[in-house]
Amino acid sequence: MPTDSQEVVFAAVGDVHGHMNRMVDHLRHQAEVLRRPFDFILQVGDFEPHRDEADLATMSAPAKYRQLGDFAAYHQARRRFPWPLYFIGGNHEPYGYLDTHPEGFELVRHCHYLGRVGVVDLHGLRVVGLSGIYQEESFRVQRPPLSALGSVSTKAFTYFNERDVEQALELGRADVLLVHDWPSGIIAPEDSAGFQGKRRSPNADTVGNEYARLLVDALQPKLVLCGHMHRSYRGSVHHASGRTTQVRCLASVEQGLDAFGLFHFRGDACSETLLDR
């Protein structure tokens, strides 16, 4: 944790879907309003860092959503990320590229993939990430090797499995946890009507997955960040230990400022600042 005299300020970003330019423009504006640079950026999956059409072909998505996006300009050093950015994988990623380094790697300067399961210390904050989404049929089986691309569905690469969750649990603790899909059981009763019949939520009880929630309960982070559902939501989880976890769900960059969050850590305290609109 940062000391009481040290403040860490970072931004969180929801699903980017290849719109890196739009993301950077929004963040530049918020940094100007803040009058200080961000210490780093955290991103919760569906980043879509496609270098070329070959990468795009390894992403699982309907044809109408297969867009090359902005990342090629960053990979070719025609544009740059102004601050260090750390992202996890979602269910729409070029896993043919990312799984060449399942432990995580730096794609270009200031752009880091945390891997299938990753942990990084950022200014005294321990950030843990789990890539992918949950599917019951895939949870207890091994992911196909990259050599199977072309002979198995690209969807097979989008799921986390039991070993991934075990590895995340072995990390012991986190200050910030990144998951793509929401943890289950975070929707307050008074908010449940707003999830009835919505995207990926026939009702509030079906939102999220139990394994993301297991990580929240085990690692007891101060803050959980997630995306996937393309909507903004704030919740909390109260633990028997007396600790409380803030859960911040972020919309997609195409939806505007609901895709962004601005967070301050000082000592053991975490707070969110409302963004300038």
Rank of each mutant, 00 (worst) to 15 (best):
G118P: 04
L114T: 03
V176E: 08
V141K: 14
N161D: 13
V117W: 00
D99G: 05
L169E: 10
V128A: 11
G124R: 13
Y134D: 01
F139K: 08
F157N: 12
V117E: 02
G132E: 04
Q135N: 12
R163L: 12
P144K: 07
G124Y: 12
I133C: 08
V120P: 08
G104H: 05
N161F: 10
L177Y: 09
H110M: 06
E93M: 04
G132Q: 05
H180T: 07
E162R: 12
H110F: 01
R173H: 09
S138C: 15
S153Y: 11
C111L: 05
A148G: 03
L114N: 04
H110L: 07
V165Y: 02
V176I: 15
F160S: 03
H110Q: 11
F160T: 04
L125P: 12
S151L: 09
H123T: 06
Y134A: 08
T158R: 13
F105M: 14
L98S: 06
H101C: 14
D164G: 02
V165S: 01
L130H: 06
R173N: 02
L114A: 11
H123Q: 15
E162K: 00
R109S: 09
K155F: 07
E103M: 11
F157Y: 15
R143W: 09
E136K: 10
A168P: 00
V127H: 02
A168F: 05
A168M: 09
Y134G: 05
G132R: 02
G96L: 03
V120Y: 11
K155Y: 05
E162F: 02
A168T: 08
V152H: 06
E106H: 04
G96H: 06
V120H: 14
N161T: 10
V152T: 00
Y134S: 06
V119E: 13
K155H: 05
A168Y: 07
H112G: 00
G129L: 14
F160Q: 01
R143V: 04
Q167R: 14
R163A: 13
V141P: 03
F157A: 11
P94W: 13
Y134T: 05
Y97A: 10
E93I: 01
I133V: 15
L130C: 07
H112I: 12
H123L: 11
L114F: 08
V152M: 12
D181F: 01
E103G: 12
L177A: 03
Q142D: 15
T100F: 09
V179I: 05
V117S: 04
L130V: 13
R109E: 11
S147I: 05
L169P: 00
L178F: 08
A174L: 11
V117M: 04
E137V: 12
E162N: 01
S138H: 15
G124I: 05
G96V: 03
